[in-house]
Design a protein around this nucleic acid. Structure first.
Lengths: 199, 199
DNA sequence: CCTACCGATCGGTAGG
DNA sequence: CCTACCGATCGGTAGG
């Protein structure tokens, strides 16, 4: 018989999952540990056998998504495809994150400001690096005449926030498949709206 | 001598302005009335001579922006211009809202879920109508072959959330003029990213 | 994992 | 517009 079984990992993940849904719906500050305990099916005090603090929960939710984003961008950036195709890959990747890790992704994009130090600074730095790396891809595309001369950060921020706005879709009846959604995101954000470009 | 002077209107507006900045920075739930009182330069209790409750402040901030959006959309919709030009007008209008009424607009898009009833229901209904009206413009453009066959709500939500993502720009050094920003928003969201459309 | 409880802080009121 | 204060709720701990 081992000294300690460890069902904690599983239970902790369950708590994190419930917390990510709760934080998305009510926001971090308006969510109490008693709310969370109700969702999990425990008394509030019992949560502290699995997690250290309310802050820790937010940190784990946010950095799980943030690190995945960073890793994916790195991988896309290294691949030998055109700049436009890299941008397309990033749009598809973010759209998928939003669809399949909705709560985590949403909490990352909307609640990061409630991180405590030093995590807040870490996150801001990580995000800044992410945006710069993305901008660099756009810049190279402009130099190679693949991409029109647009302000790179406008394009980058438009994409990142357009994706996080898909919450509406997610809440709604989902009459569209994830694939359709992804294709339409690419269609709009890369080729624009106009049918003929006579102007 | 009149029975009552009325400096209240001015003071209340000052409180609302301070509150909109505070709510944008910390979120509604994490902002206390003591925080707000500090910013305004009063004791917390004294705020209640000018406003009725914390909820009321949020309501006034949000519906001021929401009503302005609804009125503007109505006006644009009635004007005799092409569908694409209507969409462009809406993009420019929202970008301007974000630039010049940053705090109010941001609080509307990020904190509306903290409205209490019946205001919450009113807001959700108003927003739904707004999106539907916008979608209708896109739909007509598709029928008239001005706009490519895209899912209208994808396009509409992309635009609305892209604008609210410009917070980053707003916080930054603003090396771009508002006019440049507006033009780039239109450039991206209407004509896309690609230089040549050979594909 | 629960009961019992802590000090701190919350939105808001009484009274002047 | 302030002092003084209210009941409620917060994140978290002690002890078993």
């Amino acid at each position: 018989m081992p000294k300690k079984a460890r069902p904690k990992a599983t239970k902790k993940e369950f708590i994190l999952k419930k917390a990510s849904t709760l934080f998305r719906e009510k926001g971090f500050a308006a969510s109490s540990m008693r709310d969370l305990a109700d969702d999990v099916g425990l008394e509030a005090a019992s949560l502290y056998n699995h997690i250290q603090s309310k802050s820790e929960i937010l940190q784990e939710i946010i950095f799980k998504s943030a690190n995945e984003c960073s890793i994916q961008l790195e991988a896309i950036n290294k691949s030998k495809i055109s700049s436009v195709d890299k941008v397309e890959s990033i749009i598809r990747f973010h759209t998928q994150m939003m669809i399949y890790n909705f709560d985590h992704y949403f909490v990352m994009t909307h609640e990061w400001m409630h991180l405590s130090e030093p995590y807040l600074t870490t996150f801001i730095t990580q995000r800044k690096n992410y945006v710069q790396q993305f901008e660099e891809i756009v810049n190279k595309g402009i130099q190679k005449k693949e991409i029109k001369p647009i302000l790179p950060y406008v394009f980058v921020l438009n994409i990142l926030s357009a994706v996080s706005g898909l919450e509406f879709w997610h809440r709604s009846k989902q009459k569209t498949t994830p694939k359709q959604l992804e294709d339409n995101m690419v269609l709009h954000l890369i080729t624009g709206l106009k049918l003929s470009s006579k102007k």
